[in-house]
C-alpha cells in the first residue's frame, strides 16, 4: 500500500465514522461535529491522493501539488462558514422551542 492510498483510506474511515454519527445522533451539535469530521475526511482524501506516486522513495518522497491545497484551503473556509450558519440556526431553534433536536415528525 502506498502512502497516498493509506491516507485516502484514513480519510474514508473518517467519512464513514462521521456519516454513522450523523445518522445515529439526534443532538444537532453532534450532527455538526459529524459533518465537520466528514469534511476533514474528504480533505484528507483530496490531499492524500493528490500527490504524485512515490516511486522515488526519498525522505521527501513527493512534491506537493499546490492545486488541491488551495482547494482544501477554500474547503476549510466553506466548512467553517457552514458550521457557523448551522450553529446560529441551532441556537435560534433552541431559543424558540427549547429543543436541540429535530424531532421525528416532519410537520409541526
Amino acid at each position: 500500500m502506498s502512502q497516498p492510498v493509506f491516507w485516502a483510506l484514513v480519510g474514508m474511515a473518517l467519512v464513514t465514522l462521521g456519516l454513522y454519527a450523523l445518522i445515529v445522533h439526534a443532538h444537532l451539535l453532534r450532527k455538526v461535529l459529524a459533518l465537520n469530521i466528514i469534511s476533514s475526511g474528504v480533505f484528507l482524501v483530496f490531499i492524500g491522493l493528490a500527490r504524485r506516486a512515490p516511486e522515488a522513495g526519498a525522505a521527501l518522497p513527493m512534491e506537493p501539488d499546490p492545486v488541491p491545497q488551495a482547494m482544501v484551503l477554500t474547503g476549510i473556509v466553506v466548512a467553517v462558514a457552514a458550521t457557523g450558519l448551522a450553529l446560529a440556526l441551532i441556537v435560534r431553534l433552541r431559543a424558540v422551542t427549547g429543543r436541540t433536536t429535530l424531532g421525528d415528525d416532519t410537520d409541526d
Partner: peptide
C-alpha cells in the same frame, strides 16, 4: 506531514 503547510496553518487557525 503531507507537505501541505498552508493547509496545516489554516487547519489550526480555522478548523
Amino acid at each position: 506531514r503531507l507537505a501541505a503547510v498552508d493547509v496545516a496553518l489554516a487547519e489550526v487557525a480555522i478548523g
